[in-house]
Design a protein around this nucleic acid. Structure first.
Lengths: 148, 148
DNA sequence: TACTCCTTCATGCATTTGCATAAAAAACCT
DNA sequence: AGGTTTTTTATGCAAATGCATGAAGGAGTA
């Protein structure tokens, strides 16, 4: 992940490499646990959670795209999968002939409730348990600097 | 990415969410820059770099699998793509009839050299520049706790 | 040796992603 | 109003990924 041509220690490049390794390692393990328990991918959870938080439990796809980190065409297809699984429904957007509106269904809410304990437990075991609150604050502070 | 059912602040769950968002956001931007300059994905760079570091610039696929974070079948196919692009070559492994050995080619080395400045610049702009060395040390320390 | 088990690597098939583009309505001109 | 640009969403096709499985050699053991 990095060159070693410069002999002076480049702590920020090391940090970059570790950031990528650590985050994907932990994410892989958390997703693996959820899948082992029969749950869908975390991206499903993320979208449904945004819907639950939203006014009327309803969002435009564009809004979903802004909140989670997915390309437009991926959001479009993820929504279709959620609809096919009855966790959300698609309605015509009022006041905008192009648009669509996605609404959380009761089955979607039920999935969120059922999934949360497993999700929380997995994150706890793979992540939270291994650090202190002060560590978490450090992460929040530093990572806040690189966000959009 | 998280529930809000508990009112007490859960700083470590927030940190988990931010870790995922920040790392994918920055990675996306770095990869986008590299692609815009006509370079292959970072996973190619990662493998070639491991090869360059290795004895004889040669590694078994299993070793690659351990060093980077990819499933066995993905490593197998990534290697095939590298070979097809002449950045690496596959040879029969000595002393192991099953095995294969992957060796960096001169074109692979050349790609590494050419790609490094673009890669470093992108990481600098999207990541390093936004924090201090002390911040990077904090990241190293905390993320080190959650690694394998 | 013969048997079983493990490791290493590849691959067919289904799902997901990326890329380019299309279609349709809105928004913004002049 | 008429014309151009932008926004919103979907989709065909190619590439990549995940999953299950297979093939073939190595390792251990009786």
């Amino acid at each position: 992940m990095m060159d070693d041509s410069s002999l002076a220690k480049p702590p920020r490049m090391d940090a970059w490499v570790r950031l990528q390794k650590a985050s994907t390692a932990v994410l892989d393990r958390v997703e693996a646990k959820l899948k082992a328990d029969g749950y869908p991918p975390l991206s499903w959870y993320d979208v449904l959670l945004e819907l639950r938080r939203a006014d009327q439990k309803t969002l435009r796809p564009v809004e979903i795209e802004k909140r989670i980190l997915l390309a437009q065409y991926n959001v479009s297809r993820l929504i279709d999968r959620l609809v096919a699984a009855s966790f959300a429904e698609k309605l015509k957007a009022p006041n905008d002939g192009r648009g669509v509106v996605v609404r959380l269904t009761s089955q979607g809410e039920e999935l969120l409730s059922r999934m949360w304990p497993a999700y929380e437990a997995a994150v706890k075991q793979e992540f939270s348990e291994k650090m202190t609150d002060a560590d978490a604050d450090d992460l929040m502070r530093v990572l806040g600097k690189v966000l959009p």
